[in-house]
């Protein structure tokens, strides 16, 4: 495969074109079904920064409309892993990817895949809330969409409200949509970033330690939001907080020095993990 080169002509991922025009599209699986369909199929995934290999042949399936937590010590490759899921890893000079990542059975590193369109389907929320400081709340929400679409005012308002409601922020900001996003609290800014990611109607939300800069109340709001978003989106969350992984996720993957040590239902991982290394890590006996 799949080294991360410049995309050629958009192929199947072009199907996601006006993503926001697909509201209410039927989902194949209800959130209550026992067996969820596979959203990402990852095989032999390897990643490098220059000559340094940081991921070593990861194999795992990520379920649709489920929350998957990625845990592991600093430097184990958690963030690199999720950045391989929307081809952000390749944005770093000298970064390379090997192996296979299939999204809805389509190779995201295949020829003709447009990484920009891919990133609209696979949105990302970062550790530190990063709203555009000079933009209003409304413009922040619509920023991603405006990169590729001319929006009529009424349509823009509709998308804006829907995204802010989905991010559980609407009631707090509906009377000050034209004020700068930077004026919000840290927790509100993070939900604004989630609203920005949701405005383009992605299938998947990648969250890279989304609560590490937030206080416990703001963290609880985000976790509550994750629980709600799980009904419509596939969520992959990187977290250093074991309790958070235990609270919010359905399955947990433990990475260590770029290898997948254990991947199992979260209830199992945090009560009776199979691998001694997982046990030592989550009980604080590491190193």
């Amino acid at each position: 495969m799949a080294s991360a080169g410049a995309p050629t002509a958009p192929e199947k991922l072009r199907m996601t074109q006006s993503a926001h025009s697909r509201p209410g599209r039927p989902r194949e699986n209800s959130v209550n079904s026992e067996e969820a369909a596979t959203k990402f199929r990852v095989r032999r995934l390897a990643a490098w920064f220059g000559s340094q290999q940081v991921l070593h042949g990861l194999d795992l399936d990520i379920s649709k409309q489920r929350v998957t937590a990625i845990i592991g010590p600093s430097g184990c490759g958690k963030s690199t892993f999720i950045r391989c899921l929307n081809r952000m890893h390749e944005l770093v000079p000298s970064a390379r990817v090997g192996g296979e990542v299939r999204l809805d059975d389509e190779d995201i590193y295949g020829p003709g895949v447009d990484p920009v369109l891919l990133r609209r389907r696979v949105g990302m929320v970062f550790q530190k809330p990063n709203p555009f400081p000079s933009m209003s709340i409304r413009d922040n929400v619509l920023a991603g969409l405006r990169l590729t679409h001319q929006l009529a005012r009424a349509h823009a308002n509709e998308i804006n409200e829907k995204a802010l409601r989905s991010a559980a922020l609407w009631d707090e900001v509906k009377d000050r949509l034209d004020e700068p996003g930077a004026g919000l609290s840290g927790g509100q800014q993070q939900r604004l970033c989630i609203a920005r990611a949701l405005a383009v109607e992605p299938d998947v939300l990648l969250m890279d330690e989304p609560c590490s800069a937030l206080d416990p109340i703001a963290t609880a709001r985000i976790e509550d939001l994750i629980h709600t978003l799980r009904e419509r989106y596939t969520i992959v969350i990187v977290t250093h907080n074991m309790q958070q992984a235990a609270r919010v996720s359905d399955r947990t993957a433990f990475l260590l020095t770029g290898e997948l040590v254990e991947y199992a239902p979260t209830d199992r991982i945090f009560t009776a993990p199979s691998d001694k290394r997982t046990e030592d890590y989550i009980t604080g006996k590491f190193g």
Binding site: M242, Q243, A246, F270, T271, A272, P273, T278, E279, I282, T283
Partner: peptide, 9 residues
């Protein structure tokens, strides 16, 4: 401590 795994058991 919010114990996990064998500590929790």
């Amino acid at each position: 401590r919010q114990p996990m795994a064998s500590d929790l058991r």
